[in-house]
Every structure is written in C-alpha cells, then in structure tokens.
Design a protein around this nucleic acid. Structure first.
Lengths: 130, 130
DNA sequence: CTTGACCATGGAGTTTACTCCACACTTATA
DNA sequence: TATAAGTGTGGAGTAAACTCCATGGTCAAG
C-alpha cells in the first residue's frame, strides 16, 4: 500500500503520516523505487500502529511518550516480565484518567438533575467529587 | 487571596494563572491597589474555576473550548433548557472518550493476560476492540 | 533609605503537533 | 513528448499553551 491509500485507510493527512515516519512512530518498508527517492510501502500492521497512535493520543499521550512506550515495548519484547511492567504502567495511567473522567461525568449528571429539579437545594460542587 | 497564594492553592505556576486571566478563563477581582497596577484578588470560586479548567484539560478540552463552554453556560444561565443542552453535550463527549478509554484498557489487560499465559494463541488485536 | 518580597504589563521564546510550500524525480496517459 | 498524478526531502510557518524576562511599581523590615 502506498502513502495516499494508507492515508485514506487510517483517515489521516499524508503530511501527518510523513511527520510520524520522521518521528519514528511509523516504520514502513522502503523497497519500492519510485521518484527521486524510494517509496514507502505500508503493511496492515502499519494500519494498526497508526490507529494505536490515534487512540493513545485521544487518551492524552504525547507523541514522544508514545514513542518511548513503543521503544520500551520493543526493548522488552524478549522479557515477559518487562513487557508486563510496561503494560501495567499504561493501565495504571489510563485508570487514573478514567477516575477523572468519571468524576467529571457524575458532577455534570448531578448538575443536570439539579437544574431539572428547578435548582432545589445547593448547586453541585466540584470539590465534593474528588 | 493574592496571586502567589492562589498559585500554591491550585498548584499552578503564577505565569499560567496570569495567562488564564489574559485568556478570560479566570476573572478575579481587581479592587486592591498595589504596585503600578491594581492587584488581582482571588475568591474561593476562582479556586473551583481553576480546578475545573484542569479537569477539563485532562479530559482533552482546549482552552478556547473551555472558554466557549463557560460563555455558553453563563449565557444560558437564565434558561434551564439551554443549560441542560450545554451540559448534555459535554456529557456525550465525555462518554465517547470513556469508550475509547475502555477500549484501550481491555486491549491492554488482554495483552497482559496473553503474555502471562506464555503467549498462547493469537496476540490480542486492536481491531477487535472497536 | 536601600534592600527584598510581591505585584502588573508587554513582549520574546519554547514545545508540540502538525501544515504548507518549493523543488526534484518517476510513471501512466493523451 | 508534454502533462498530470503520485512520491520524497528539506525547510518555513502556524496554533496552542505555556514559560521566561525586562521594566516599573508598592510596601515592610532593617
């Protein structure tokens, strides 16, 4: 798969993909010779990698964090212990984020209820949701 | 409360607070005259506002989105319908984010299990978690 | 009355994550 | 054979969210 088809598949601009390649987040093959330089060739696993990046980004990871995670993951690929360590660190971080999210959600839901009740009693206070 | 105490309270650098004031995200009083210009005076509700900003930020809102939300919220303050509309839009957005988060979490948990099982069977695939 | 601790403003600098060229090359099409 | 479409590189530009700094002010302590 060439870069423009890959871009359509993962729904990202070509420029962004090249940016990710430059950063080392995507490492497509370069076997096909084309213009002034060999072309990038994307495999299905690159599609997964791109989707993973998007997912991690919506969860608040920076690109360099994603890169370090990938590197650590690859580095520990032959030690199950290290792999599990890296994975569990990610899980912990996401769980913290989930708590923040649930906090915000119950705060907002209670606020809706409070408004619907004609603002009876005290307004929900953010401080009560930590 | 003056700016440095406020900064300690909400655990943010003074510069960041001034930046938020400039953006209109915080609107402390300016009654106290001090140096070349009147000082900012922060009330408990400013502390809540600052914490709310941090929370919204960890949930992926940009500062200008937060500003528009605040503005919309204030604008609809006398119409319960509009207030509920704004709140429910936020809830929807957070629920989407929660789904992404749960996706990532179950993917990572299954991956941990898979590694712990001595990598028996197929590796968990991200595509299966959407 | 000077020194140090705070305060404000305006503006420059930084990092992140793109986004947009200009230029150069190859290949398919008219 | 010209032209369009696709690809690569290097580098400039941009928006967001800070972060740092120079300058200028007030005020309490020594």
């Amino acid at each position: 798969m060439l870069i423009s088809e890959f871009a359509r598949t993962v729904e990202l601009p070509v420029d962004t993909i090249r940016f990710y390649i430059a950063k080392g987040l995507l490492k497509p093959d370069r076997s096909l010779k084309g213009g002034s330089n060999p072309y990038h060739l994307f495999k299905p696993e690159d599609v997964t990698a791109a989707r993973m990046i998007r997912l991690q980004q919506t969860l608040g990871y920076t690109l360099s964090e994603i890169l370090t995670l990938n590197d650590e993951y690859r580095a520990g690929e032959h030690s199950s212990e290290r792999t599990i360590e890296v994975l569990e660190l990610q899980i912990e971080r996401l769980q913290e984020r989930k708590i923040a999210l649930d906090t915000a959600l119950s705060f907002l839901r209670n606020k809706v209820d409070w408004v619907k009740s004609g603002k009876a009693g005290d307004a929900p206070n953010l401080e009560d949701y930590q």
